[in-house]
């Protein structure tokens, strides 16, 4: 009677032990990369925009590469925690990171030492342009039709309150850049820091503040319902989903900014690995599945290859620093 469970136990135990030792046994070899599971670090919380892109891309990537790609959310510190984890991982191509615009300001703001030179770009996959949103009753009362109308009003009535994200966040820099382009000093408006675009939009809906800068997509439901009005988009061309919103350039402001997302690997990752990853991602972003999904979700499609993405990040880093300095934030 007593022997039976013991044998069974020993069997279970030994199976588990063998299984666990066998898994990490294979050594990484760049020639036939990838040979084991890949981890994709997401510096933002589960369910957010970046997380949704990361999870869909991970799903597609594991089909392309034939290895599981698991998303882990390492959130906190305005993206600092996840970007740190992504940049300081072993440069073997088994830890990727879905980097976001915040990589360009972490070092400037003193939140982390990590910046674009700690990573190698694989490919940029998405860019959501910012917009300037106001309450329709304010727009009607002051005759605001585009961003220049609004800025002219600011010049005469300083002290308007704007929100959209925390201090030094992407939408704050979007506002700073627009004001700098128009030659208006940053202290003519007051930035009320919020925990995110959703909170800023709530305040604007309740008319507790005067404007919100955030991505057009994030304000999509309110724009469609007509409870908010967009005065301009900070993109190169008008958006397909919102063709009525003028671009900044149309009204004479040479200013573009969007929150970008792209896949990065730690600096020092071998060229062959980057190439394999880039080719897989390139095939994905060109596929109908990807294009349709991005369109359904309202994400802006924007692709850059590895070399262009590296250049882009370096430029963005320099531009972000200059704007934060001009805004008196650093």
């Amino acid at each position: 009677m007593k022997r039976k469970p013991t044998t069974l136990l020993m069997f279970v135990l030994s199976t588990l032990l063998v299984a666990s030792i066998a898994v990490p046994g294979c050594a990484p070899d760049t020639a036939d990369y990838p040979t084991k599971a890949i981890t994709l670090v997401c510096p933002w919380g589960a369910g957010g925009g970046t997380d949704r892109v990361a999870r869909f891309l991970a799903d597609q990537l594991s089909n392309e590469l034939g290895q599981p790609v698991a998303v882990i959310n390492q959130t906190g510190g305005n993206g600092a925690v996840g970007h740190n984890a992504g940049a300081l991982a072993d440069p073997d191509g088994y830890t990727l990171c879905i980097s976001t615009w915040e990589l360009s300001i972490l070092r400037h703001m003193g939140w982390s030492d990590i910046a674009h030179d700690n990573v190698r770009g694989v490919a940029m996959v998405n860019l959501d342009p910012a917009g300037l949103m106001v309450h329709p009753s304010d727009a009607a009362a002051h005759g605001w039709e585009n961003a220049v109308d609004w800025i002219d009003y600011v010049k005469q009535n300083p002290g308007l309150e704007v929100s959209g994200t925390g201090t030094g966040g992407v939408w704050h820099v979007a506002l700073l850049g627009m004001l700098a382009e128009a030659g208006v000093s940053a202290d003519q408006v007051e930035w009320l820091p919020s925990t995110g675009a959703a909170e800023g939009i709530t305040w604007l809906l309740g008319q507790h503040i005067d404007a919100v800068t955030c991505s057009i997509v994030e304000a999509g439901p309110q724009l469609e319902a007509g409870t908010l009005v967009a005065l301009g988009t900070m993109s190169e061309e008008r958006l397909a989903a919102f063709p009525d919103i003028p671009t900044m350039r149309e009204v004479g402001l040479d200013w573009q900014l969007g929150a970008w997302r792209g896949i990065t690997v730690p600096a020092g990752t071998p060229d062959e690995v980057v190439e394999v990853l880039h080719d897989a991602i390139h095939r994905i972003v060109m596929s109908d599945t990807w294009i349709n999904w991005m369109e359904d979700q309202g994400f802006g499609q924007f692709y850059l290859n590895s070399a262009d993405f590296d250049t882009f990040m370096a430029q963005d880093y320099a531009a972000g620093g200059a704007l934060l300095e001009a805004g008196g934030l650093i």
Binding site: L16, L17, A19, S20, I21, V23
Partner: peptide, 8 residues
């Protein structure tokens, strides 16, 4: 070392 053996 890995989750399974250490936890056991």
């Amino acid at each position: 070392i890995g989750f399974i053996p250490t936890t056991l």
